[in-house]
Design a binder for these strands. Structure first.
Lengths: 78, 78, 78, 78
DNA sequence: GTGGTCTAGACCACG
DNA sequence: GTGGTCTAGACCACG
């Protein structure tokens, strides 16, 4: 299916990039990802945008956030 | 009035649980409560979060802390 | 009465400095103070320590914090 | 000079051992030493004893403690 | 070995 | 980008 990724909302593009990184095994299960602050800088977006992207992946069960600790790769990643 | 207690900060939820224990007479007047360390483990939170809860009950006069000794049930509990 | 101010906790010393600034009219009523971040840098302490100092002045009614906005000089300052 | 180290107070013995480690270059300048807790376990003594030993080395200018951070090798070590 | 203070740095919720 | 909460773990001061 052909998609014009450029036209999609920024946070969905970021979510997709994160999703791909995860699927490519960039992060290990239960591994702590870089902080919101670092990820937002890395993608060159506002922290809010980054948080919306992370939020999507949390709903998908790919990620998990632990308050005061960080963002983690979810346990179940079928 | 409907309230979403789940959404309240952890330290307020814990303060409420401690308050109820006290009102139910779990601890005797002038009795030493478990230590901050033990209570924080019991509630599954960080010691600092537990301390914020205790701090609230100190303001209410329910609890009293003695440096180097422990947490005690306040003297006057009408 | 002689007191060893140096021995007082940092957050109490800082609260006193802020209190004096306010009483000297450094800030106007309803004026926004520098952010927690800026104040903590100015006093050379961690943000949490600065927050404890501000917390004391809030209890005294000198300051007021607006979530997401900042720290403000309290309305009534007779 | 002959000394009966065994007869010296424990904290002085510990201080001497730490002093020797430092002089042997075990720690780098400005390096963070293991925590009070770890050092006391390592020497098999109470934390109070360890603290008295560290205190001696602080007076000598060999060590410096930063509250909330740890024990550090002092800057000037002639 | 307890409570007290301080640092450090994370995510959260509100604009 | 602010203040709010939470975690983590250090040293301090009192017994």
């Amino acid at each position: 299916m052909v998609m014009n990724y450029e036209a999609l909302p920024l946070y969905i593009q970021i979510a997709q990039k994160l999703r791909e990184s995860i699927q490519q095994g960039v992060y290990q299960v239960e591994e702590k990802l870089p902080s919101e602050h670092q990820l937002s800088e890395r993608f060159g977006v506002n922290r809010h945008t980054l948080r919306r992207a992370v939020s999507l992946l949390k709903e998908e069960g790919l990620l998990r956030t632990d308050k005061g600790r960080g963002i983690f790769l979810g346990v179940c990643r079928t």
